[in-house]
Design a protein around this nucleic acid. Structure first.
Lengths: 202, 202
DNA sequence: CTAGGTGATGACAGCGGCTGACGTCGCGCG
DNA sequence: CGCGCGACGTCAGCCGCTGTCATCACCTAG
């Protein structure tokens, strides 16, 4: 009876992921996605600024999750402690139930350079937001930007492991390990010592 | 006498940068760029895979420069020493004479999100190449990826400073400072100490 | 000197992403 | 009851980008 049903963007996103996964990203036109849920191409572009965005919409939530970890941290926290806090907070967006969905989504992204570009861009936006907040807390340059970029790097590496085949550890758990590895890496003494090259065995 | 003149891609690149800077990126069509140097749109796309690429062509040289620093490094080098070596090597591509050209180019990129996406993508490709080489040297995951990403992060921050207004330090000089800052940042003791938050005054 | 190959380019047609303008319809509100 | 609003459809059109084929200078073999 209703002229149009609710949850339009959600249905478009689901349909797009399905079509991309089965027919390929470039082989799927925006009009096809729209028609598969009973809409027109014009409506698709009213919900998403461009075709790629249908896979990335909602990542502002991720920025908020990272920032939430920062505002909750104590004033005396060091930059690296803030990074850790942001990562812990963001990990809540990646519960085990979403792992399979993330795997499917990522498999689509990995098969198309244009989608990889958009993904990297989103990470940059995230890093920029983190950097702004860190500067707002009195952290000076270039420390603020370095810390922000390190956070997204650790997140990226952790996410890759999280959706890896057979991986069962939780996102937080992986993030802590990777962050420790980063600390270990940069803190390594440049002086010559036996077996210094392989930083860790695992 | 010749049917076509040499250096076609170079002339297209120069014309594109000029037009982008004066009229804006989106307002400039590929056909306009081509016609401004006496060619057709079709020829433009034979030289560059897409419109954005006219601003980024040649960045494979940067990958080579980074990698050259790695192959020249001694076998016992730690990951961070390798990062430092790669950065020093890459700095040779950014002599003071190119600073103004880089500034103009960057001002165009900063005004268009699509160009920023492409730039980030190129940095990712660079990081991936660095990661591969580091793994080839026996560095394990996630250390290899973390080191590679850190290298591009330090490079990015350094480049931003290098083209900053009034900046006169050389690229190598800036890179060394930023890299030291990254070491200092991640190595900072998590334990509470007076005035620990602002890592550095400058 | 001629025939044929090569490589960069032009000309043309066409698809798909994306946009602006405008009209339609159901809904809630005064 | 009339009105505006908001989501959507329709249409026309630009531009990025591609496949296909023809063209023309140059070069090489015979």
């Amino acid at each position: 009876m209703v002229r149009w049903q609710p949850g339009t963007s959600g249905r478009l996103q689901a349909a797009a992921l399905e079509l991309f996964a089965s027919n390929g990203y470039e082989q799927t036109t925006a009009a096809e996605i729209a028609q598969s849920v009973g809409l027109t191409e014009r409506t698709f572009f009213r919900h998403f600024s461009d075709k790629r965005e249908v896979l990335f919409h909602g990542q502002e939530l991720m920025v908020d999750a990272f920032l939430a970890g920062l505002v909750a941290a104590p004033d005396e926290a060091t930059p690296m402690e803030l990074v850790a806090a942001a990562l812990e907070s963001a990990a809540e967006l990646f519960p085990d139930e979403r792992r399979d969905h993330s795997r499917l989504r990522q498999s689509v992204i990995e098969q198309n350079p244009a989608l990889q570009e958009r993904e990297r861009h989103k990470m940059s936006v995230l890093a920029a937001a983190l950097g702004d907040t860190l500067r707002g807390r009195g952290i000076t340059e270039p420390a603020a930007t370095l810390a922000a970029e390190s956070a997204t790097t650790v997140f990226g590496v952790s996410f890759t492991q999280w959706i890896g085949a057979g991986e069962e550890r939780s996102m937080v758990e992986i993030e802590r390990t990777v962050l420790a590895e980063l600390r270990n890496l940069t803190a390594a003494r440049p002086a010559a010592s036996p077996a210094a090259r392989p930083a860790a065995k695992a």
